[in-house]
Nucleic acid binder design. Structure first.
Lengths: 213, 213
DNA sequence: CTGCTAAGATAGTAATCAATTACTATCTTA
DNA sequence: TAAGATAGTAATTGATTACTATCTTAGCAG
């Protein structure tokens, strides 16, 4: 809030002429990277431009609007997160194995891109029904439906008790990802998120199985 | 992002002269209320001033700086959250009863002030060690230590297994509060946060108790 | 009734924001 | 090789940001 160091990004590249498509992809990466240190509302077009090594005005050669940049970012997030989930489920195994694999895959992705949950949850938390919020809702909601489906399959396979609240369990898994980000900063990044996930997931799984009374 | 409706707050009061102390308290309430719709980085001094019914310049009669406003907000949060935790623990009962009461008290507070987790977690997620981040770390870290202490007591009382990972369990409880905020927006506020907490907490508790093998 | 003080209004400031302009460099291709 | 398309720069726009200087007046002590 005070330093204003401009070395937030490395445009140290040899400054070459790039295609519009390439620049759009670079812009998306820049936004996700900038989200590690700044709130979405604090990410400026100047910062994005500096991050990819072009001037601020040149950014508007590739995007008609700043909101268009955010739309592209959300599209990118939607497809990538969906692809990760597809891969984790397509690998097969028991429903509970798929559930754990999906959870670990999401944790690994967030560990590589810590700004992602910030982007999604920021847009989710605002009341107004902006188009961006609909995209965020679809992404997180879709992830939640996949989780619920796996939990339902685990029930049918006898891996989880039928009395388990599917919706509550799914939301618990989602919020755990966000919780891991908080934990990693609370521990000053001393603990790897993937390692912390290994400690937390068994507790959640026991909770899903319930108490054998 | 586009409407710019100024009716974010209601300064409909009869516009009376107030003491500086009173205005400072109003400013804190205004910030916490504005955090329901905006990210902390998006809360402007103009919005705060409009919210309490004075001009933007008049705000700087009571605060030397904008960071001073945030310091006051964090102080307010620290004392209030600490007071809530003290009350929940002082009420007595078994460690597990105190744990559930503390959890419910925090959920009730967050349900009344949805912007609070946003403020705390926003400051936690940024890497630089700003003075505000130290305050946020103390608040959340202190809450985590209280949770760990209760879990430890529950272990000694035989209410929880000794093998339980205290740290992971405490962080899981903290992130659940944040998860409840996400859930309430994902459900379009159709579900009360307090009610959702009643569904999620038993799952967590079962997870803490572990699987009786 | 009279000053004095502090709360607030009014009206500025420089800096930064998103966005647009006029213009230039570079690549492609007819 | 010349023409058009594309990617880029530099400068500037009006709006908004945090912050400040000057003026006004409410409210209280004497």
């Amino acid at each position: 809030m005070s330093d204003r160091s401009d070395l937030e990004c490395q445009p140290v590249e040899p400054r070459q002429r790039q295609s519009a498509e390439s620049r759009r992809e670079e812009a998306v990466e820049a936004v996700i990277q900038l989200a590690n240190e700044h709130s979405p509302e604090g990410i400026t077009t100047q910062a994005i431009a500096s991050c990819i090594g072009i001037t601020q005005g040149a950014l508007f050669r590739h995007f008609p609007d700043k909101t268009a940049i955010w739309r592209t970012v959300f599209d990118w997030l939607g497809t990538h997160l969906g692809r990760i989930a597809d891969a984790a489920i397509a690998y097969g195994g028991t429903p509970l194995e798929m559930l754990e694999r999906l959870f670990n895959a999401q944790v690994a992705f967030v560990a590589d891109h810590p700004g992602v949950p910030r982007i999604l949850f920021h847009e989710l938390q605002r009341p107004e029904g902006s188009p961006l919020q609909m995209l965020a809702r679809n992404i997180v909601g879709g992830y939640r439906e996949r989780l619920k489906s796996l939990i339902r399959q685990a029930k049918q396979a006898g891996e989880l008790p039928l009395a388990l609240d599917e919706e509550a369990a799914a939301v618990l898994l989602i919020s755990t990802v966000q919780g891991l980000v908080v934990q990693s900063t609370l521990f000053s990044g001393a603990l790897d998120m993937r390692e912390a996930a290994q400690r937390i997931f068994p507790i959640l799984l026991d909770g899903f199985r319930g108490v054998q009374s």
